[in-house]
Design a protein around this nucleic acid. Structure first.
Lengths: 338, 338
DNA sequence: TTGCCTATTGAAAACGGTTACAATTTGGTG
DNA sequence: CACCAAATTGTAACCGTTTTCAATAGGCAA
């Protein structure tokens, strides 16, 4: 059934070495041999077994991207950036989902330990920092979209604290002093950083931090709905809501709309991530754009360079972010910006 | 640097065969040897090279899922179903994106030809039917979410024509006779089937099919916006719009809202896919649920069974679909159904 | 003709595991 | 004590490539 390089060699009346040379476009092979090999390959429908090749070369030209799930649409741009950077150097990106389970994340990293891929990128690490840093010292491992609070690890992200600071400051600049925060119970570094940015912005403007204005849920829209509901039932409602993700924010806005809250005047909403749906939802959501495509592209470029050079770059790179102002903060004029 | 099974064998004072046996939990190995091997593995931080193992065993226990991009959120449930079914039998699912490019799809299938994965599932095939059927005869290949109009290919999907028929019929049952259709220029089988379902429903109710009520765009929300704009500028507007995907429908509804159209009364909207955002958008979108999780689970179960049995099941399986009725068709009462 | 350089080729050794088979040890039994 | 079966172990072949190295052939100058 399976046709191997030996079969091709026999069919073409040459040695396996010659077949291999033709297939890998090495020089030092006569035109006749090359022709004969190509004919044989064609005739037998041969395609080389990468397991043999990879074993011999000790490289697979494959990079594993580990994400939580494909639910978060903003992964898409990151992955596109990764794939583009990878393709440019003959690599492929494979994606696997961890479902936020550290054990499964470790299992997937096993593909890297066992050389089924050359390197891996964690896009939403759930393993503890210690473990990640340890692994990064022994394997080609990088983190993207999340900051890891440690040295010795290639890490591409944005300055989440600064971005949240900017978003909150913008709301304050609009005269809002009672700003609700919807965050997540899961303590990812980005959530923590965004919370800290929110607090710092309050402090910088001498606005007291009120614990009752913080709601913590999951990463989904439903949590936004619940958070909004919680805020609306407060004795004194907030006049603006900053959520650590667009998905949450959309859920929150949906609930506000149903309760006839005037979004953009009565209550402002600010999201995070600039997902595609953020400007489809009416009113359009103001949000923070983290340059996802660029992050993905950057992390893979540096990772591949690490694979090749093996004096690894273990820096942390913070790429720029942008505030996108739309209707939910009363900036309808800019609504057609994406 | 790289520690191999030989190093472990030396460290544990046994042969490589014994190490292998311990690692694979074979019987016929004494407790002392097992213990020694485990200590050595621990001490050296050994993890087996799968390339060697896979080459020898000619199997990788990995299945490749090829999707267009991670943009479409409804892939998430399919992939979850696939992963669950795979995990249950010790397999892993790897995801790769084709960006709707047939050449890239072929390149990715190369991982199957070259045995880097045991099997592959196409979730949005862009290759022509002929090619797919040919490949399926030689490799473990299946198609999911899309019907392939041919024999000899494992295929798990829903009856898209029937589902579109049901959705359109529902709109007709609501007294609508001027129903717009937003479809895609890309001629995927599901788009074709859904269009046919729309037409059949019209015919079954003696409603003439009007080409001017059909708008074809891309798969994104922006196309929905454009389609809706086109409809609103028609001399006679449609009184309902059926879109072949929720994303399109959401874009369409957003545009309608901005033009002060009363959704649910003045104009009804019906989507397809039941994505998470479909019930976050206000008004909530009526849509067709294709049991994504089940589709994913089913296709992988059958595919693994094909890997093992090699008298392959090449049937086409149509799983059930469900109409989800929400506000966009004036069914607010059912709005809290998901 | 001889000698030397270059281009082409093939044999065989890796790569890191698994496993068939043979060899050795162990234990029990007559 | 001799013998046999069962349990444990090691040797070596094998999976399908790539690549080193040596061998061969061909061309050209002396």
């Amino acid at each position: 059934m399976n046709v191997t390089i030996k079969d091709v060699a026999r069919e073409a009346n040459v040695s396996v070495a010659t077949v291999s040379r033709v297939l890998n476009e090495k020089k030092n092979v006569s035109a006749e041999s090359a022709e004969a090999v190509k004919r044989a390959v064609e005739k037998l429908g041969y395609s080389p077994n990468f397991l043999g090749r990879d074993l011999r070369k000790s490289e697979t030209k494959r990079i594993l991207a580990i994400i939580a799930s494909t639910e978060q649409t903003f992964y898409n741009d990151v992955l596109r950036g990764m794939q583009d950077a990878a393709s440019a150097q003959g690599y492929d990106v494979l994606i696997a989902t961890s479902a936020n389970d550290p054990e499964r994340e470790m299992h997937l990293l096993g593909m890297m330990f066992s050389r089924a891929v050359d390197a891996a990128v964690l896009l939403a690490p759930k393993l503890d920092t210690e473990t990640i840093v340890d692994l990064a010292s022994r394997y080609k491992l990088a983190v993207c979209l999340e900051r890891v609070d440690a040295q010795g690890l290639l890490c591409v992200t944005i300055n989440n604290e600064r971005a949240a600071f900017d978003a909150t400051s913008y709301l304050i600049g609009k005269g809002r002093h009672r700003i609700g925060l919807i965050t997540t119970k899961i303590r990812s570094q980005s959530s923590i950083d965004r919370e800290n940015g929110y607090r710092k912005a309050l402090r910088a403007n001498n606005i007291p931090f009120l614990p009752e204005l913080v709601y913590a849920g999951d990463y989904d829209a439903e949590s936004g709905t619940k958070g909004c509901d919680y805020f609306l039932n407060l004795p004194r409602r907030p006049d603006a809501v900053f959520s650590i993700s667009d998905t949450i924010s959309i859920g929150a806005m949906a609930h506000a709309v149903q309760n006839n809250i005037l979004i953009g005047t009565e209550m402002l909403f600010f999201g995070f991530d600039n997902i595609g749906y953020s400007h489809m939802f009416i009113p359009k959501l103001s949000t923070v754009d983290q340059s996802c495509y660029l992050q993905g592209k950057t992390v893979v470029e540096k990772l591949i360079s690490n694979i090749k050079n093996d004096k690894p770059d273990t820096g942390t790179y913070m790429l720029p972010h942008t505030l996108i102002l739309r209707e939910s903060t009363g900036d309808a004029a800019a609504a057609n910006r994406r």
